[in-house]
Design a protein around this nucleic acid. Structure first.
Length: 643
DNA sequence: AAGATCTGC
DNA sequence: ACGCAGATCTT
């Protein structure tokens, strides 16, 4: 239990203002990922496989039980853990330590059977049986449905993170509850100015009930009045308690919860006290909470990257990593990874998502221009090389989708054509189910072929789309009835396994294709290179048969190498890309100020804002301005940052 | 699309 | 420390 005391009721301190504004409140309603009031919960089933078996076999709650897979144990319930059992001991050791233990083998498919079943003798039939985890997946689905049922249909945002974990963005629901409980928040902001501070919450004691409450950071005191983020997270905690009670009552399962401002902290929170408890990590407690961890506990740092950091900085604790300057981190880990680590150990795990089709299309315009400029460098204009397919990747929560399409033969490749094709692919992705908010969208072209110098004349423009598509995969004859040049045909993927020419491959060296393939464009250009010498050596002068543009990288994973990283912060109003959340915020405030000015001048609220750099009707203009990859983008303009 | 590798459980 | 599955990366 927490050692902290509950808040004392006291009168509001006059003259003090909330740190939050009406804009923040509106962002909360919209579940904006950058909202400082945001409430995220992580719910984790306790020893999940073991609980599944307990429920299935209807054994007593305090009965020690382990789930067996061949000769090993893959799950131990909490009663059994009291006997010192863990996943790495043998069955015999386990039984010795806990004679009363139930060892239940997982279900298996028996050779020839039509369905999996629980076989008593499975553990000695490893040769003829195959493990089935289907029972757990089925339970997982039932539990997820139960969780969703416990939340308001119109405000819920539930994301399945794994078979036994769920993230919930409670922001919208918390917002609704706040308005109900504190009617003073419902009114319009003073002067209709969303940058106005909210009134402070009344300082009646916040009732944290039985939650494990993480102590506040050293420089914070409980005596200070709570602000709205404390209220929001408290409401979130109430919701989580309700959800857990529903799962417990309807399905018998216990789970643990973490409530915090972002996914990373929420997940650490749910693991903090188990089983059957929930932990609240208030914003004012994040630093203290985090500093006590080994950073290898943080998602994404458990593996090679964590090892790399440990080696580089001779520590595995968050505390000792905190004083390391961001430049140092960048130097040892690369620009993107360094930046990510710097932020993640400070509990910062929030990047904006793409929330509308319009916003996605604005990115696609940028990506198309970027890819086109790379293609120009590749000699696409001179028909030296030509990509055959375009691929659009998309991510919504944990769900990813991708669509690809052939790039019409015969047609000249240009920026507008690429953009149109990209939009078509986006349309296809949007046709099936939930799409927004989207945490990752990326565009690539691939399947490069060397110089097509055949007679691809005016006839190409007279062929319908569908016919072109057929030609793409069909016989090696072009639309004018001519056979394709020999060189072209030889690069077709006959086998279904893709093969690539080296960029600089020649007729004499065709047989080497694929040997030096590198996925993703080499972004380690000299002027932007990070100081990882090994990487530089590996990537310089290597062929780049695939051009990828655009990653709005998922915030809860470290960035990857060899992937171009595009500034994630784009203004909704004018498509301008900014370097940071702070920059975006002040940029938007600029819009706001300008709107007010305009309003005063004209007395009529103009809906249109000022500059729209990327929405000019001719994409050609912007692409010229952006120029080739060698020209550094101007500050404040749409900008590509290279990792 | 298929195989390889990484990661977490 | 092992076996498995899902995600991500490579080809």
């Amino acid at each position: 239990m927490s050692s902290s005391q509950p808040f004392e009721a006291s009168s509001p301190i006059r003259g003090k203002k909330s740190r939050f504004t009406y804009r923040h409140l509106a962002q909360l309603a919209a579940s904006s990922t950058t909202c400082p009031l945001r409430v995220i919960a992580h719910v984790d089933l306790d020893a999940f496989y073991a609980q599944c078996e307990m429920v299935r076999l209807n054994v007593a709650e305090d009965q020690p039980l382990a789930v067996q897979q061949w000769q090993g144990l893959i799950a131990i319930n909490y009663p059994a853990r009291k006997f010192g059992l863990n996943r790495h001991i043998t069955i015999t050791e386990a039984k010795k330590l806990c004679p009363n233990l139930i060892c239940q083998h997982v279900a298996t498919w028996k050779e020839g059977d039509e369905k999996w079943a629980y076989h008593d003798d499975a553990f000695k039939n490893i040769a003829t049986h195959k493990v089935s985890l289907d029972p757990y997946r089925l339970q997982s689905r039932t539990i997820l449905a139960c969780i969703k049922e416990a939340l308001p249909a119109d405000l819920q945002r539930v994301e399945k993170a794994s078979v036994d974990e769920v993230f919930m963005d409670l922001s919208a629901q918390v917002h609704a509850t706040m308005l109900k409980r504190y009617p003073e928040l419902s009114g319009p902001p003073p002067y209709d100015d969303p940058t106005e501070s909210l009134p402070l919450p009344p300082t009646t004691a916040l009732d944290w009930q039985a939650d494990a409450l993480i102590d506040l950071d050293a420089d914070e005191t409980e005596e200070e009045d709570p602000d709205w983020d404390d209220v929001a997270i408290l409401i979130g905690s109430e919701i989580v308690r309700t959800v857990r009670a529903a799962v417990r009552e309807k399905l018998q399962y216990t789970c643990s919860g973490g409530i915090a401002q972002n996914k990373m902290i929420a997940k650490l929170g749910s693991a903090h006290k188990k089983p059957n408890q929930q932990t609240v990590v208030r914003n004012r407690a994040v630093q203290k909470f985090l500093s006590e961890f080994k950073f290898t506990k943080i998602r994404g740092l458990g593996g090679k990257l964590g090892e790399q950091i440990t080696t580089a900085f001779k520590t595995d604790t968050v505390n000792e990593l905190l004083p390391i300057a961001i430049q140092q981190l960048k130097q040892k880990l690369g620009h993107d990874t360094g930046t990510w680590v710097y932020q993640i150990i400070r509990g910062i795990d929030t990047r904006p998502t793409i929330t509308t089709q319009e916003q996605a299309i604005r990115w696609l315009r940028i990506f198309s221009a970027d890819i086109y400029s790379r293609l120009v460098e590749e000699g696409v204009v001179e028909n030296k090389r030509r990509p055959k397919t375009m691929n659009l990747h998309h991510r919504h929560g944990s769900q990813t989708k991708s669509r690809q399409a052939p790039i019409s033969l015969g047609k000249k490749i240009d920026e507008a054509g690429l953009f149109e094709l990209a939009k078509t692919l986006l349309g296809q992705i949007m046709q099936e189910g939930q799409v927004w908010p989207c945490s990752n969208i990326s565009l690539s072209v691939g399947g490069f072929e060397d110089g097509i110098v055949g007679n691809m004349g005016i006839g190409a423009f007279l062929v319908k789309k569908d016919e072109l598509k057929a030609l793409d995969t069909g016989p090696a004859i072009n639309e004018t009835g001519q056979e394709r040049p020999e060189k072209r045909r030889r690069t077709e993927p006959y086998t279904g396994i893709q093969r690539f020419f080296k960029l600089d491959s020649t007729d004499e060296h065709d047989d080497e294709f694929g040997s030096q393939y590198l996925s993703g464009i080499d972004t380690t250009s000299p002027e932007n290179a990070d100081s990882n010498e090994e990487d530089k050596a590996a990537s310089s002068n290597l062929p780049c048969p695939e051009a990828t543009a655009g990653k709005t990288t998922l915030s809860n994973r470290p960035p990857r190498k060899h992937q171009q990283h595009i500034t994630n912060y784009m203004c909704d109003r004018c498509s301008m890309a900014l370097e940071s959340a702070e920059a975006l915020q002040s940029h938007q405030d600029f819009h706001f100020a300008k709107d007010l000015e305009d309003e005063e001048r004209t007395q009529v609220a103009p809906k249109q804002s000022g500059a729209i750099p990327n929405n000019k009707k001719s994409t050609g203009t912007t692409s010229k301005k952006r120029g080739t990859r060698n020209s550094k983008p101007e500050k404040g303009q749409s900008k590509l940052a290279f990792g």
